[in-house]
Design a protein around this nucleic acid. Structure first.
Lengths: 246, 246
DNA sequence: GGCCTTGTGTGCGCCACCTGACATACCAGT
DNA sequence: ACTGGTATGTCAGGTGGCGCACACAAGGCC
């Protein structure tokens, strides 16, 4: 995943930023910085004031919920369709959740203070973020039901598809240990279900490098939650594209 | 649960509305109607345009997610701390979720169109709703993790406490069948776990009428998710009270 | 009073997943 | 080549909740 040369190139990858009219983008630009993030980098910590908001470019973030005495569980994924740090937009400085980088790559960063002052102007970004909040709520609510009713295999397949969408590639890095945390299951379970998927020829992996080899059949294995959440973000994307053309 | 005489009385029960300055409230009032809702009434359907938004007064709503070929699961609870119909506020006319009345009672209703035009003025309600969206996101993300990691007993205890908070009473109506749907488990499981709680003297129930008899010990049985979500909404409430005093 | 609907108790085989190891394979550094 | 860390495979015992069924009880309606 190559890192874009400058902000203007990077911007094109993020749906929220690419939808902005030129003047709004120019006003924002001085407050942005292009950063290369590595896996496990912390975007913001639970219970502490959020310093920066982040617009993923080629990286992908995970919103995690730490349950006391348990492993963390991923509650939402944040890719180039959105922004990490919604609480800042919503007028709250912190949240009980943590956001970490799940797939390394480029991202655009802005301080929480700058975002707040910028939003007072009340432009297109404000409306875009509203749509994104809605899509996030849909994703979260789908995750609630999915985690309750679907098997670890369905969820694993779904998770792989969603991540592939977000990195824009059918191969990326992730260990079984990591996937286990995302899904909220033991690594042993992942080893088992991933093994089944590999034997069936849907994916192939080795030491953290995973490739989706048969996307069509993987979609069949995944639960409908994938399609529902995908549709929601697809709608967001097309609306952004529309905005851009105006 | 008595139904308030008029809008001004009802307003006092809803945290979002009670936080509004007098002039904003007076502007809103002509567009509101006070309604008495019964259990299982539909607030809005999944996938269809949302006609009304709803501010619960003494009633409680459930945001449900219908999984194909499965029973629905409650993904969020909506009580007098908030509003049903966030998509409208967020600029989207529909969502894949459904909202139904879980505990009957009074609610204040407004058409989606009226809310949209009213919000153009950009007053206190706008800011209040932002805070509420954040609290809702916290609730949802907690539900994701909770549904994955906690036992049906912990979740049942938690759910009872949250509902009691929202109706403002330690007794209310709900059948095992209903609770099973909310928790996303079989009724047999609820019969079992509820039986344990009753034998232990924490609750007592009969044919849909349930009473929390030992709140303290019920809190011990419930998972921490209760405390976390409760704290988030408590913060929202206290901020609303602050606004009102200004 | 007798019906029917609705709410609740309960039983049993079954399976996904947990818990907690231990064993192997691959890679990097020296 | 040796070593230590990391990624993965695997296993055996345990359990929570599923799936499905049947029985019973309490109230509402005729």
């Amino acid at each position: 995943m190559l890192v874009p040369a400058d902000l203007d190139v990077a911007r094109q990858h993020n749906f929220l930023l690419s939808a902005l009219p030129e003047d709004e983008w120019q006003r924002m630009k001085p407050h942005l910085s292009l950063v290369d993030a590595a896996v496990k980098d912390l975007v913001y910590e639970a219970g502490l004031p959020i310093e920066h908001v982040v617009f993923p470019v080629t990286s992908v973030g995970s919103m995690l919920n730490d349950i006391e005495g348990e492993t963390a569980v991923e509650v939402a994924t944040i890719g180039r369709e959105g922004m990490a740090g919604l609480p800042v937009f919503l007028g709250v400085s912190e949240s009980p959740n943590r956001v970490v980088i799940q797939v390394g790559g480029a991202l655009i960063r802005m301080t929480a203070v700058d975002l707040r002052t910028f939003l007072l102007g009340d432009g297109v970004l404000h409306a875009q973020l509203h749509r994104y909040v809605q899509a996030t709520i849909v994703q979260l609510s789908q995750n609630v039901a999915c985690n309750r009713l679907h098997s670890s295999e369905e969820r694993a397949a779904r998770w792989l598809l969603m991540t592939a969408d977000r990195v824009g590639s059918s191969e990326f890095f992730l260990t079984q240990e990591f996937l286990a945390q995302m899904l909220g299951v033991r690594r042993g379970t992942v080893s088992l279900t991933a093994g089944v998927l590999q034997t069936a020829g849907l994916i192939s992996y080795s030491r953290g490098h995973i490739t989706i080899t048969d996307r069509g059949r993987l979609e069949e294995v995944a639960c409908d939650c994938y399609g529902i959440v995908h549709a929601e973000f697809e709608q967001l994307r097309s609306r952004s594209a529309e905005k851009r053309r105006q």
